[in-house]
Simulated scan of single mutants.
Amino acid sequence: MNDAVRMDAVSKVYGRGRGAVAALREVSATLPRGRLTAVMGPSGSGKSTFLHCAAGLDTPTSGTVRLGDTELSSMNETKLTELRRRRVGFVFQAFNLVSSLTVEQNIILPLRLSRTRPDKAWLTEVVARVGLADRTGHRPGQLSGGQQQRVAIARALVTRPDVVFGDEPTGALDTMTARDVLTLLRETVDGMGQTVVMVTHDPVAASYADTVLFLADGRIVDSMDAPSSDKVAARMTRLGAWK
């Protein structure tokens, strides 16, 4: 099976009655293994809801989500939590590191939470790949923003997840640092066979992806393979994202 994630007719409605808001409307999408997919759209288009449903952080109102062969909609919260710890990695705009823990302790935190012993060789490789081999004993406060996001990426990779989901992973970084982080995410796909799905509002970030999905009003309205930042920006303008 070559799909890391498959979504079939997924809708998500918040609230009830007249106050109900449809964040996703019958979205169907396949997110292929070993590729970087970017998800873009105007503010309020449903990007974060798409990510949360695909990652098992939120349950669709209707429709189905599969992570590999596993159907998520039939799972209770305990099972979903277990699945997310073992099979899904997350990288957020805010780095979400524990300030009292060292770099290494932050990286292996998902393993500790699932009571799994770290594979020392794999941990060493992940730390080396994100360029933090000489920083493992530091605490987050001693690192730059870019280094902290590298710790977050290492933490996302350490469980060997099926998919790494990024929610605006470069949103809090300056342009040069953002490019370093995007290059690293690209390398995890090309060099490690990782699958990455990233929500972003930045056409430059999207240009690092294999495919860009465009959302508007809770629907996928277009996709683009081999994107360039200029093409992505032009498409976003047509969506009314920037006036």
Results as ranks from 00 to 15, higher is better:
Arg33Cys: 13
Val232Asn: 04
Ala38His: 01
Gln142Pro: 11
Thr78Leu: 15
Leu157Lys: 10
Met40Ile: 05
Pro42Arg: 10
Leu111Asn: 00
Arg235Tyr: 13
Asp8Glu: 15
Asp222Pro: 01
Ala216Asp: 15
Val27Arg: 03
His201Val: 05
Gly145Val: 04
His138Pro: 13
Val88Asp: 03
Tyr14Glu: 05
Arg35Glu: 14
Arg25Ile: 00
Leu213Met: 12
Leu97Glu: 04
Glu168Lys: 02
Thr49His: 05
Gly146Glu: 07
Val158Met: 07
Ala156Leu: 09
Leu132Phe: 11
Gly218Met: 04
Gly89Lys: 08
Val39Ala: 05
Leu184Asp: 01
Ser229Val: 07
Ala4Leu: 09
Ala4Lys: 02
Thr177Gln: 09
Gly191His: 05
Val103Gln: 04
Val39Asn: 04
Val151Cys: 02
Ser144Arg: 11
Glu104Ala: 12
Gly56Trp: 00
Leu97Lys: 01
Asp210Ile: 09
Arg6Thr: 15
Gly193Asp: 02
His201Lys: 11
Asp222Thr: 01
Ser144Val: 08
Val103Asp: 00
Ala121Pro: 01
Asp190Ile: 11
Ala4Val: 09
Gly17Gln: 13
Ala216Gly: 13
Arg25Ala: 03
Ala121Gln: 14
Ala22Cys: 11
Pro161Ser: 08
Ile107Trp: 08
Leu157Asn: 07
Arg238His: 06
Val65Gln: 07
Arg35Tyr: 09
Asp222Leu: 03
Gln142Arg: 13
Gly193Arg: 02
Arg112Pro: 10
Ile108Glu: 04
Thr237Lys: 14
Thr177Arg: 05
Asp162Val: 10
Arg112Trp: 10
Leu215Met: 12
Val65Tyr: 01
Pro60Asp: 06
Leu184Thr: 02
Ala178Leu: 04
Arg25Val: 07
Leu111Ser: 01
Leu109Asp: 06
Ser62Asn: 14
Ile107Arg: 04
Val197Thr: 04
Thr124Val: 13
